[in-house]
Amino acid sequence: MLRVKRSQILLYLLPMLITIAVINLTPIGYTLYLSFTNNTLFNGEYNFVGLTNYSYWFSVANTDLLYVIGNTLLYVVVCIALFLLVGLATALALNNQKIKGLPFWRAALLVPWATPYAITSLIWKFLFNYDFGPINQIGRIFLGPQSGIPWMTDPFWAFVAVVIVNVWLSYPFFTVVILGALQSVPSELGEAANVDGANAWQRFRSVTLPLLLPAITPATILSSITTFQMFGVVYLITAGGPVTSADKPGATSFVMIYIYNKILGDNAANIHYAQIATFAVLIFIILGSVTFLTRSLGDSKESLA
């Protein structure tokens, strides 16, 4: 390690610390403050009410909320597994110098990332339409005019649909991260293993994967967080539906969509800012501690190895 003066360490850290303190921490502080008040849109008050809002959320943590959280976790697990699989496979394929036309393949595979999701989500919604969506229309050419998958009206298929869209949107992120990290795998290492006669899987597991982990781990953690907090894309496609009963959350009502439909957005004239802030704090605490524990466990494993 390099031995330097503390002041110099600080100098290198300073730009990032200032950024984080001013832009990341102040909204968190503000939200925390709001969560202890009684502020709503209609009352406009900022009276201190202690933990009232927190006890509110624990009191309404009924079966709906548990269902929503469980459903969101399932979504996160499925999506992340697919992100990793597709991202890794594409990155490995795109890193293969023997493949011809690499610039074309690389650009083509990153296109989903280049187009604004506000538009592509709506396109997907159309592709999934039961009667006139191209996916079902193409299917009918092969399977007969009566066939069709109820993408947007059946709970199971709607879940599948939003997984597909999310994979489509997010795998390029993993492709880029992994492709970038693959550059840190010296080709000599692979060749050495090759000479040793290790097969492809062995080479991948013992040489490539350990070098990719430092890049994959934070990407996986952050993607899990953003998928857990997913809103825009899913909202544009299903709005949380399909709803099977108006008093129950729909099959794709993930946490943020559930909250939006319940107490934010156009569905609540009197916005309960304090309650929303409290919810944000609770989500932050839960996701934050899971992140922290995962990392700490990861650290201790690293130091053992």
């Binding site: 968190i28 939200t31 953690i221 909250i259 934010l264 919810f279 989500i283 996701l287 990392r295």
Partner: peptide, 14 residues
């Protein structure tokens, strides 16, 4: 690790 934890804040709600 704390840096990563920061990312868990749901900015959309704030």
């Amino acid at each position: 690790n704390l840096l990563l934890v920061l990312q868990a804040f749901p900015a959309l709600l704030a």
